[in-house]
């Protein structure tokens, strides 16, 4: 019997944290210790000095998601947690793929780049680098097609995400990270 809450799905959390030493470590340690399954994790600066933003993708059911949120809030340096799994959102990963490109196949590769809306950012005598930002599936699709040419190197970020429209209100403390100095 699977009730909706028991369903394990990939969930996206946006976590605003104070930019202090060890914060990433604390968050990662929490996920490891409680056995939450991190699919990807990204941290970076925001427009607010002193506030960093993490995007965490985790596989979890509804109850677990609530506890992930509550446990993140128990970290003293966590300012705000938003689960945007069900929100309309933009979610992106970035990939760089270096592929074998003998002169006779370059035209073909350029066409592929167009189809996938990828950019070719470097070209040498026998290889090219593709840059693609998109969803996980989108990137996997490109990687699969390029596989036939022979991928020499590939690197991919975790996802970063943002909900569409007005920024969701930061309910906790009635304070937005922007108020922090």
């Amino acid at each position: 019997m699977t009730t909706p809450t028991r369903k394990h799905i990939l969930r996206t959390f946006v976590v605003f944290v104070e930019d202090r030493p060890g914060v990433l470590n604390r968050a990662a340690s929490l996920f490891r210790r409680r056995g939450y399954n991190i699919e990807s994790l990204n941290v970076g600066q925001t427009h607010v000095p002193g506030v960093s933003r993490m995007t965490v993708v985790v596989e979890a059911d509804e109850d677990t998601a609530r506890r992930i949120e509550a446990n993140l809030y128990k970290l003293v340096n966590v300012l705000e947690v938003q689960e945007i799994t069900h929100a309309s959102r933009i979610e992106r990963e970035l990939a760089l793929i270096k592929v074998k490109a003998p002169p006779e196949r370059r035209a073909e590769l350029i066409q592929i780049a167009e189809v996938f809306r990828a950019r070719i950012v470097d070209m040498s005598t026998d290889s090219m680098i593709f840059e693609l930002s998109g969803s996980h599936d989108h990137i996997a699709g490109l990687a699969q097609v390029l596989g036939e040419f022979g991928i020499e190197e590939m690197v991919q970020t975790g996802s970063v995400a943002m909900s569409r429209g007005a920024a969701p209100p930061m309910t906790h403390l009635g304070r937005r990270p922007a108020d922090l100095q």
Binding site: D63, R66, R67, A70, N71, Y73, K74
Partner: peptide, 10 residues
């Protein structure tokens, strides 16, 4: 502590 809710018993 909200993180205790539904942790073991629903």
């Amino acid at each position: 502590d909200p993180s205790e809710i539904n942790k073991n018993v629903k």
